[in-house]
Design a protein around this nucleic acid. Sequence first.
DNA 1: ACGCCTTATTCAAACGTTTGAATCTCTTGA
DNA 2: TCAAGAGATTCAAACGTTTGAATAAGGCGT
Lengths: 370, 370
Amino acid sequence: MVQRKSGHVTLLDIAQACGYSVSTVSIVLSEAPLSQNVAASTRDRIRKMAQQLGYHPDAYARSLRRRRSQTIAVLAYDLSDPFCIPIVHGIQEGLQPADYLPLLVDAQTQRKLFDNYLKMILERRAEGVIVIASWIFQETNLLEDIEKNRVPIVIVGRDLTNKKVSSLLVDNDAGGALALRHLIELGHRRIAIIRGPEELFDTEPRWAGVQRAAAEAGIQIDRKLVFQLPNLMGSTSGFEGGLSFSKEMLTSRRPFTAVLAFDDLTALGVVRGLTSAGLKVPDDCSVVGFDDVLPAAVSTPGITTIRQPLKEMGLLASEWTLRAINSRDQNAERPVKLFRAPPELVVRMSTSRHIPESRRASLAKSRLTI
Amino acid sequence: MVQRKSGHVTLLDIAQACGYSVSTVSIVLSEAPLSQNVAASTRDRIRKMAQQLGYHPDAYARSLRRRRSQTIAVLAYDLSDPFCIPIVHGIQEGLQPADYLPLLVDAQTQRKLFDNYLKMILERRAEGVIVIASWIFQETNLLEDIEKNRVPIVIVGRDLTNKKVSSLLVDNDAGGALALRHLIELGHRRIAIIRGPEELFDTEPRWAGVQRAAAEAGIQIDRKLVFQLPNLMGSTSGFEGGLSFSKEMLTSRRPFTAVLAFDDLTALGVVRGLTSAGLKVPDDCSVVGFDDVLPAAVSTPGITTIRQPLKEMGLLASEWTLRAINSRDQNAERPVKLFRAPPELVVRMSTSRHIPESRRASLAKSRLTI
DNA sequence: ACGCCTTATTCAAACGTTTGAATCTCTTGA
DNA sequence: TCAAGAGATTCAAACGTTTGAATAAGGCGT
């Protein structure tokens, strides 16, 4: 109704409209301790007027004065990776009750964007930063600036404790072992492996877990059946890698009955490759993925995979960050923490018991004679 | 190095450190027009010192003074819907060059969160708001507050021009027709349809398009083969709907050779249902989806679908918003606009030419006799 | 010796809040 | 009658920037 000269309704507007000082209005509307001393009738009038004029406190002025932004930056390396979303949800859940706003930005795996946003985060005075795994986040000098300003950082999806950054990530070693053991228990012995890109930090520990499990079971991994995804990333590069490697496997003429893929998208690529070569998953070959993202659950057959407790990790990350902010306010100690999330095997339809050639032949025969 | 008493480095710190006034420092660092008059040597010293101390201007103080937040809110109804991501990317792309920060928030389909974030958006003085389709966004009184403050709104994924909100959405009618025509051209005549949830605004026009295309081709749609997804949303409710409806189709014993699903997740549910009943997609039944989200592309068979130009829509939305902000600044006219994005048929492997029973039987026979 | 222009820098007010201290008006007890 | 206290409200400074206006110091033409 009242047409403001410039944009927004302020405390002054309300003060003038109902004849009190700006201070009183502020005290009432921000529910400061002093507001107990304000007459109930005054409170009512002020509140009504605020409502009527559509007043919303200016976060900028407020933050400036209070020296708190009530903001925590969430820097995702690539939102189009379904991996990020559950983490973000967990973070939101943790931040909501504390009345912090997650400042969510998406670097789209671009170094330039990453730095750009990091600068913006600094300027917006985020009180904490949660980084969702990125190999870009190695040595940018902005990181120094963040620490110079004593802004707590937490990283999800990578272990950066050696750089004094609290970290949460899945136990890749355990996950790799879990995946391989599942295949072994189903009777598979000749297993092709697709390792992650060299630059990715998950790659090594996951591979180590696989090797450990193989050794424990006394199984040889055929080196000719070990592949490695290229570094080039992008939301579908895993899929394409899986697709082309599965073709290589088939043309190599090395026998294999199962494929352990680096992640779900890679697994989906393998399924596509095997299927288009006329093989059936899981009857002719089992496939297992890693992460448990949406596409793995809704494709057919559903992909057996290793689930990361992503939402829980996000939640925990937000709690750590909030706690670190508190500690800093009280100049308390802030130890660097590490959480290795336990992975979980999710069995779907892309894996099944291995049927030895001999038995398989007789089965086929019996089917024919029905 | 220099340990600030309270948090961040300010202009004053720099001014003191190199013996100039705050004004001069501000003029230099913000590259104000006056900075031409500042001696080159002075500029250098100030810039060096700023760099050295790790200065980053306080966005809060700056915005307060300039009365511009350089922020545009992006309110997504559910980020876990793969639908949202490309739109967000388009928006980012459009905002980047204009140096606006997208304030991305995720309502997670929860009314409460939605209102909460809308309040925060108001408080953070976003200069514009882009809403990514939500049925929640119907009549919240916060909407009034937004308009009271003359903040431009643009909505993606729904037509709200009747409420004077500029809107971008796919041409659902054309898309529905496109999908049906594709099936018809492949020779399908008995086609099951899964409509969207009643509450969703895409449902009706898409269905209208389907009916129109059917009429044009002189084809009857069997009412018993028309289903409707329930309103209850969530990222997987489409999948589950498709799964259970496909079972209903089969038990109904009505003949059909193709399914037109409301969206990709639903289509994936259908594929799962048909497959687990022993049917082959596309050999025994074709399936077509809508949206072209990631899971549709990476599942096997890849889902034939109707692509929405989501990224382009996001880009355009951001451009509209920026333009609207400019117009407002100049008190210019701001017409309500509408963009109906042209849908595009993406043919993958889930659809194929219908083979009539007669021909099919002889085929099967010939295969046996090989 | 004066005004005037140019170049380089600073003053001071303003943006909208918050908050410790101050003020003012009652009431109450001595 | 007055001091003390309680209750209700306001003052004024501060947060870190920006910016129109002011100042200061020189150079130049007259």
